[in-house]
Design a protein around this nucleic acid. Structure first.
Lengths: 125, 125
DNA sequence: TTAGTTGCTTACTTTTAGTATGCAAATATT
DNA sequence: AATATTTGCATACTAAAAGTAAGCAACTAA
């Protein structure tokens, strides 16, 4: 029924890198974890969990494993008891950090204006 | 029971701009909408919906209203029938676009390596 | 003997996002 | 004159993502 030129030409679906990157990093925690790992060399699981204190253990595990699969984070298990697992950023992951930091800098500058706008808009959000 | 130095010193909670920006733009659609509005001057609701063809109308509405509240997008309603509503990026929103585009450029370069890594990691994700 | 340690996993609940339908009110079509 | 179409939503409902709480292994310290 619906003929869509954009769909026919296969736009914005598989060959859109923006789409792809947002599908990967558009989750709630990936970017924050990359930032934290980008500034500290190696971190253990619980260190990360303290630094990002409002992440749940479950989501920290899940997100770290996804980042590992993506090749952005390296995971090293030391067969000790109690267990020790260290996480570090890879070269690929590190290459992303400056871009995230730039975004964070923008946020730093503009967050006040955003918050004021939101207050002006009303309490309904 | 739990004494946490980081929590005591109020780290990473309210005064962390990274946290703040991720809380705002870490949703599924905000950044993509800003990108699209950043490259086209004014767009109607259905134009946006076609450009980002896999967003639901509901989430497009919700996200646009949030971006409006944040002062990143301006919404103009023309009292016609059928209704016409146009969206455009604000100066504040536009100032964010280059950073997002840089991120997208990074994605463009590295998405292949990420995908390969993911394939190597296994089918389990 | 019991408690503490670490990095998880698993079952369950809550929050967020997606689907489907309906609506107003004018114009276009039959 | 009756019906269909158009646009930008709202709303009720379902699915997916994230949060919560509990437990576990297996060794050490009290």
């Amino acid at each position: 029924m619906k003929e869509n030129i954009l769909e026919k030409n296969n736009w914005n679906v598989k060959n859109c890198p923006v789409r792809n990157v947002l599908d990967r990093f558009g989750d709630k925690w990936s970017i924050l974890i990359i930032m934290v790992l980008g500034e500290r060399e190696r971190m253990r699981f619980n260190e990360l969990n303290k630094e990002i204190h409002d992440i749940s253990q479950k989501m920290l595990t899940v997100t770290l494993r996804t980042l590992e699969a993506d090749g952005l984070v390296k995971r090293t298990v030391y067969p000790e008891v109690p267990p020790r697992v260290e996480y570090e950023i890879t070269d690929l992951g590190r290459s992303l950090v400056p871009y995230i930091n730039s975004l964070a800098a923008w946020a730093n500058v503009n967050i006040k204006e955003i918050q004021e706008s939101r207050e002006r808009y009303g309490v309904t959000i």
